[in-house]
Simulated scan of single mutants.
Amino acid sequence: MTNDTLEKFKGTFTALLTPMMEDGSIDFASLEQAVEHQLRQGTKGFYVGGSTGEGFLLTLEERMQILETVVRVNAGRGTVIAHVGCISTRETIKLAKHAEQMNVDAVSAVVPFYYKLSMTEIKRHYEDVMASTPLPMIIYHFPGATGVSLTMDFYEQMSKHPKCIGVKFTSLNLFEMEQIRAKCGKDFLIFNGHDEVYTGGAIMGADGAIGSTFNIMPGIFAKLFSLAQAKQWEAMPVLQSQANEVITELISIDVMAYEKYVMYLQGVFRTPFIRQPLKQLTADEKRKIEAFFQSNEVLKADTLKQSIG
């Protein structure tokens, strides 16, 4: 990759939530507002249609419509990575071809899950997807959700493929992250995926981060990235602790339902609706979130001054 290409992918990328109306339909007005809000807060770009975006609860048509909206509103300002992953190689290719039509910067795909596949079958899946489009590919490694652990040999092989430019590494195993950097070289991009260890990931060599909690506190992670770029490591733990105070609250209830409710309180989303079978917040949980929101300066800092009706 050229230096210009590398720089395009270095920064904090928000794994966008998908706002929905109370009837479960996509709230495109709130999505447009979320894109603008994120860019104002210093986000480098967007990871669209991933786990946080309820990608596996959306139809293929909805996933395409969401990507089209993000690309249109973004208008070339931020880097756009389209998550096209499906269990089926055929459907993954369909979404990848659509992403190519949308002129996104890269595609990403989660490791095929549910069916127990060998590394050979997983490698063939990625190779077939990459053969279908000229867009670069970012592997999505999330063993906590998929149950699939990729091998170092797999990473080494994929890093030699001209279209495979990196990995979204959503694991707390930072030793493994460091080994990927050592085995695959400095030009193989590594995106930290667990927000609570971003500081550690940056020290271990992550080029940037793709994060779920960036939806509700994009500003603090943009600052953390800037500190990492300047190698001001000693200043990072303070900000990381502030972010982790929020994350501790969030995981005590539920990640995505909590984030959507905060986006609603921040005035970015019109409703906090989340699709079943994902967790539906109780009245007590909503009150707890509201109380913490009012007491937390990190979350309030990213509140919109004026929201849509």
Rank of each mutant, 00 (worst) to 15 (best):
E7I: 03
T12E: 09
T14N: 12
T14H: 10
L16T: 09
L16H: 01
L17E: 14
T18I: 02
P19L: 01
P19M: 07
P19S: 03
M21H: 15
M21N: 15
E22R: 15
E22N: 15
D23M: 04
S25L: 01
I26Q: 07
D27P: 06
F28L: 01
F28A: 04
L31E: 03
E32H: 04
A34D: 13
H37I: 00
Q38K: 11
L39P: 02
R40S: 15
G42L: 05
G45Y: 08
S51V: 08
S51T: 15
T52H: 05
G55K: 11
F56T: 07
L60Y: 00
L60T: 10
M64C: 07
Q65D: 13
Q65G: 06
E68D: 10
V71W: 02
V71T: 02
V73H: 08
G76Q: 02
R77F: 08
R77S: 05
R77M: 08
I81E: 04
A82R: 13
A82G: 06
V84T: 13
V84H: 07
C86T: 06
I87K: 11
R90I: 08
L95I: 06
A96N: 05
A96K: 02
A96R: 05
K97E: 14
E100H: 14
S108Q: 05
K116D: 13
L117C: 09
T120R: 15
T120G: 10
E121N: 12
E121Y: 01
R124Q: 15
H125F: 13
Y126M: 09
T133I: 00
P134H: 09
L135H: 02
P136T: 01
M137H: 09
I138V: 14
H141D: 09
H141S: 04
F142N: 14
P143V: 00
G144C: 07
Y155K: 09
E156G: 12
E156I: 08
M158V: 01
V167E: 02
T170H: 02
L172K: 10
L172W: 10
N173I: 05
N173T: 02
M177Y: 06
M177V: 02
R181H: 07
R181S: 06
R181N: 08
G185T: 08
D187E: 10
F191P: 03
G193P: 04
D195H: 01
D195M: 08
V197S: 05
Y198A: 15
T199E: 11
A206I: 05
G208Y: 00
A209N: 06
I210Y: 06
G211T: 08
F214Q: 12
F214P: 04
M217H: 04
M217L: 09
M217R: 07
G219C: 05
A222G: 10
K223R: 15
A230S: 15
A230W: 01
M236C: 10
M236Q: 14
P237C: 12
L239T: 00
S241P: 07
A243Q: 03
A243G: 14
E249N: 06
L250S: 12
L250Y: 08
S252C: 04
Y258K: 03
E259Y: 01
V262L: 09
Y264D: 06
Y264T: 09
G267M: 01
R270Q: 12
T271H: 11
T271K: 11
T271G: 00
P272Q: 03
P272Y: 07
R275C: 00
A283F: 12
K286P: 11
K286M: 14
I289N: 07
Q294P: 00
S295N: 13
N296W: 09
L299H: 00
T303H: 10
Q306N: 14
G309D: 13
